[in-house]
Amino acid sequence: MNPFKTVLYAFILLLSQNAIFAQQVEETPINQSELPKFITANSIAYSDIQIEKAYNYDMLTLGDTVLMLKNGTTYPPNHRDYKRLGITTSMYAGTAVIAFGILWAMPESVSNWDKEEIKEKGVFWKWKENVKAGPVWDDDDWVLNYITHPYSGGVYYMTARSSGFTVLESFGYSALMSTFFWEYGIEAFAEVPSTQDLIVTPVLGSVVGEGFFYAKKSILRHDRRVLKSRFLGYTSLLLMDPFNTLLDSFGYKENVKTQMNIAPIGLGPGSNKSVWGLNFNMQF
C-alpha cells in the first residue's frame, strides 16, 4: 500500500475514534444544589420568594447552546468574534506555503501535478491557465476526494463555528475558503480546479464539521479529556479545530469581557435571611 495512504488511514481512524469516544463519555450530572466542576462561581443564582433555597443555573441549561468553561469564557462565543476569525484565517495563509510544499514533495501519482511543466513555464502562468480551464471533473484518488476534502471542509467550518458563527454562516465560510483559498487559490498553481471538490468540500465538510462541533463541546465539558486522558483530549481538539486550539493555547483573549452575577453576599442584620447583591464587571 502507498505509504501516504497508510499514514492517512491511521490519521482518519484516530480522528474518528476520538470523536466517537468524546460523544460516548458519560455526561456529568447537573445538581441544582451545587455547582458542577466546570461551572465557575459567576454562574447565575437566585432564590425563591421565601429565600429558603437557592438554585444555581449554569449557561448550559439554557437550550444547551453555550458552555461555561473554568476560565470564565464560553464555547462557542455568544457573539460573532470577527477578531478570532481574522487571526485564524491569517494562520491559514501562513500554512498555505507548507501545504503547497507537502503536495509538491508527494509523487505525481498522488498529487496529479505535472511538475516538469510547472518548472518550465512558471507557477503564475500555470495558475492563469488552470483557472481559465476549470472547473473539471478530476481523476484524483477517492481518498483525496472523499476523505481529505470533507475533512478539510470540516476544519474550515469549525474555524468559523468556534468563532461564534451560525451553521449557515460557517457553511458559507467553508465554501469561500475551499473555493477561493484552495481550489482557485493554492491548488490552482498546480492543477485545474475540481468540480467535485468544489461541491464535496463545503457540503460534506459542513456535515463533518458540525459533528466536530458537538464532539468538541463534549471534550471541553469533560475538562478537555477523552477517556479521562488529556493527551487524547488535546489531540482530538487539535485535529478537529487546529487553528482555534492553537490560538487558545497562545492565550487568546477578547478585547473586552463583561460579567454579571446575582448571588448572596451575607445575612441581614438581626435576621437569618440572605442579602442578595448584583455584581457587574468589565475587563479590558
Rank of each mutant, 00 (worst) to 15 (best):
P269M: 09
V110T: 10
G185N: 10
N145W: 03
G86S: 15
Y146L: 11
T28E: 15
M59E: 11
A19D: 01
A105D: 08
L14N: 10
L239S: 00
A105Y: 15
N78Q: 12
K273A: 12
L278Y: 12
Q196A: 05
E254T: 15
Q32L: 11
S170Q: 04
L13W: 13
E108W: 05
V25T: 06
V208F: 11
G63A: 02
T95P: 00
S43Q: 11
G277K: 07
E26F: 04
N244C: 02
P76N: 13
P264D: 07
A105G: 12
N78E: 15
S229A: 12
M1Y: 13
D197I: 02
I98T: 10
D223L: 01
L168Y: 11
N145C: 03
G211M: 13
E169K: 01
A93N: 11
A96S: 14
M91H: 02
T258E: 14
I39W: 03
K115F: 02
E210T: 08
L62S: 09
K273W: 09
V203C: 05
E129D: 11
I262W: 09
F243P: 00
I49R: 13
F180A: 13
E183T: 01
V256E: 11
A133W: 07
L85D: 00
D81P: 03
F181A: 13
T166V: 09
H149I: 01
D138P: 08
T201A: 03
L62T: 04
P242K: 02
W182H: 04
I102W: 12
I186G: 09
N272E: 15
N2D: 15
K115M: 11
N2I: 01
S16W: 11
E26P: 01
L8S: 05
V192Q: 00
L227A: 10
F21G: 01
L278R: 09
P135I: 08
M1V: 05
S206G: 09
W182T: 01
N279M: 08
G94D: 14
A215L: 05
P150V: 01
G268R: 12
K83F: 14
L67T: 05
D248C: 03
T235G: 02
T148R: 04
D241A: 02
A96R: 00
F250S: 09
Q50E: 14
S109T: 14
V203M: 14
E129V: 04
W276G: 02
A188V: 06
R230F: 12
Y151K: 00
G211R: 06
K126I: 03
N31V: 03
E117N: 08
A10E: 07
T6K: 12
I102H: 08
L198F: 05
S33Q: 07
D248W: 01
F4W: 07
G172V: 00
H79W: 11
L220H: 03
Y92A: 06
M282C: 06
K70D: 15
L204K: 03
Q32D: 11
Q23V: 03
K119H: 13
L237W: 00
S206P: 02
K217R: 13
V110I: 14
S249I: 08
F181Y: 15
